[in-house]
Design a binder for these strands. Sequence first.
DNA 1: TGTCTTTTGTACCATTTCGCAAACTATTCC
DNA 2: GGAATAGTTTGCGAAATGGTACAAAAGACA
Lengths: 226, 226
Amino acid sequence: MVQKTRRPPPAPAKPAPAKPDAAAAPKRRGRPRAYQPDVALGRALDLFRKSGFAATSLDDLSAATGMNRPSLYGAFGDKRELYIKSYERYRENARAALADVFRAQLPLRKRLERIYGIALDIYISGEEGPKGCFTVLTAASEAVNDPVIRAMVIDSLAELDRAFASCFRVGKERGELSDDADPVVLSQLASATLHTIAIRARAHVSRKELEAIVKGAIGVMCGTGK
Amino acid sequence: MVQKTRRPPPAPAKPAPAKPDAAAAPKRRGRPRAYQPDVALGRALDLFRKSGFAATSLDDLSAATGMNRPSLYGAFGDKRELYIKSYERYRENARAALADVFRAQLPLRKRLERIYGIALDIYISGEEGPKGCFTVLTAASEAVNDPVIRAMVIDSLAELDRAFASCFRVGKERGELSDDADPVVLSQLASATLHTIAIRARAHVSRKELEAIVKGAIGVMCGTGK
DNA sequence: TGTCTTTTGTACCATTTCGCAAACTATTCC
DNA sequence: GGAATAGTTTGCGAAATGGTACAAAAGACA
């Protein structure tokens, strides 16, 4: 007997922006929010990324976002929902950061270099120690027990594999790879390289060393074309 | 003002076995233990591996080990120390499981296959979902904030790299690799492959798929010698 | 002006969590 | 048998945790 009156589910957070066109001022009804959901979610993401789900308390989140707990709850739902939304946000950010490169028409090597460079930017960012990759370092842990998070993790991994595979396919068509190169296998190796640097970054391995690993991996994947 | 009288540090847990030779019955002094430290530590390890540090409570540990909290504390120290000891134990186990293969004189490919096979056994074991690799999935998370754990993680990663590198060096000497193959670079790729399957295993990717990834990776690393 | 709507802030609750002290029990040594 | 020793059990307690009720606040609308 936990819940009593509890408004249905905490509402889909989205303020249902009247008309998707009226961008500027649909003039919401009641008391105006004291926070920007976007930046608050960003702060929450930072925390979760740093400490994982269990070690991040609602008080921490409350302090970091500047919202008090009831507001947090109203805006994002309970802790787990907030975690999931943070993870979604992380994925959007990562996708956005990498979209250009994955779309661009660059030589394969150059492209890979850029991708890993951006990834390193993401993994190493953060004043309080490098934060690594959300998928690898906190979501994967939760994945065993939570089916929703698990599905997201699987999807993230698959998405990355696919993006890399497409790079390698294009590269192969352009003759940048030997004929017997298998784009799918290479894509998995490319993902693996991303994963390993995420882990190592978390352990404070220096950017220089990580870049060396990347360089070596690219060399192997693209053939020893020295 | 938390601690008051607190016996110094909880003592190095080791009962200081009188003489290292008197293997069988050094006849400990006081009341005999109701638990076997070894199996208790194993249980603790299982729990930490499944849920990570923060999400595992002392009550959980107490239930799993059959020891009540004061005994736990007396035997292993506080939660963090128990975590660290569990991690040490995990590393010992992993080392032991892999020692033979790393020492054996096998053809490179065969050797790698065996290594990954054993790794998969470790990663997938566990009734309540696959547990993955301690280093990758829980220790790495803690590594940002805890210097001791960080050092252990770095050491684990380096140890693995070195072991793989030695495999590749031997393989190269035997002519199983092309002359321009770089054992160090390959070792990092081999580690990366291990890391990626640890992560994927945690997300319930099937053993068959993981084996396919391994097979592809070995193919690339050892040269396309089909 | 007054009503209605949405959000905030305070305070609260039940539960869990970690850690510890104090008393009790089983064993060895003398 | 009586210390001395090592371990167990019970149970406390202070703090933290996730979550919520409720009244006050701030604006829109009529």
